[in-house]
Structures are given as structure tokens and as C-alpha cells.
């Protein structure tokens, strides 16, 4: 399972990078979304998969999966939501003000910084 996950994570990172390097704002934002999925899965995989019951003491299991990566990922999910929302509004306001979503045309020009 871990090996399979390693490849899935690699694919997620690859697509994310490709999207982030493209010219359209929306694709860049989608890229960051994929990147955070990849990062979350990577964290989880690093901690080891299916090592026991869900980390709830009520389960009374002999062993539990690692709770720490889960807590970290939970924080990361919520943060990446905040960031995605911020990016989206940034993109949409940029388009409204400047009339383009092309990254090449959005470069600040000399003397205008």
C-alpha cells in the first residue's frame, strides 16, 4: 500500500507543479489545491498506514494508528482551505481590475513598482 501511495503522491505533485507553472490564474489555484492533497497524503504515509484502529480510545484496540500526522494534516487542510479561498478572490479581483489572468501580462513593469 505504501508503495502505491508513494506513486500516487508523486503523480499529485507532478500535476500540481505543472499546473502551477502554467499561465492561467485558475489553473495555478487548482495546482495549489492538488499540491496540498499530495502533501497531506505524504504526511499520512510517512507515519505508516493501517497500523491499528482509528486513534479513538473508545475503540479499546491493542494498537492505534499514529494520531500526530492526523492532527497535523487536519490543521493543514483547514489552512489550505483558507489559502485557496484567498487565492480565488485574489484571482477574481485581479481579473476585475486588470482585465487579464495571464501571468505574463501581470508582471510588474519597470518603474511601476
Amino acid at each position: 500500500m505504501e508503495i502505491l501511495m508513494a506513486f500516487i503522491i508523486g503523480i499529485l505533485f507532478m500535476s500540481a507543479t505543472y499546473l502551477m507553472l502554467s499561465k492561467s490564474l485558475l489553473r495555478i489555484i487548482i495546482g495549489t489545491g492538488l499540491l496540498s492533497h499530495g502533501a497531506h497524503l505524504l504526511l499520512l504515509t510517512m507515519g505508516g498506514l493501517k497500523r491499528g484502529a482509528a486513534p479513538l480510545l473508545g475503540e479499546h484496540a491493542p494498537s492505534y494508528t499514529d494520531p500526530l500526522p492526523q492532527a497535523l494534516i487536519l490543521t493543514a487542510i483547514v489552512i489550505s482551505f483558507g489559502v485557496t479561498a484567498f487565492f480565488l478572490v485574489l484571482a477574481y479581483r485581479t481579473y476585475q481590475e486588470l482585465g487579464t489572468d495571464n501571468m505574463d501580462r501581470l508582471r510588474g513593469n519597470e518603474g511601476n513598482d
Binding site: G52, T65, I77
Partner: peptide, 9 residues
């Protein structure tokens, strides 16, 4: 992967 909190969120 036995992470109910994550799945919910």
C-alpha cells in the same frame, strides 16, 4: 487509513 476526523473535515 483510519482517520475519521480527517475524512469528515
Amino acid at each position: 487509513f483510519r482517520a475519521p476526523d480527517l475524512a469528515l473535515t
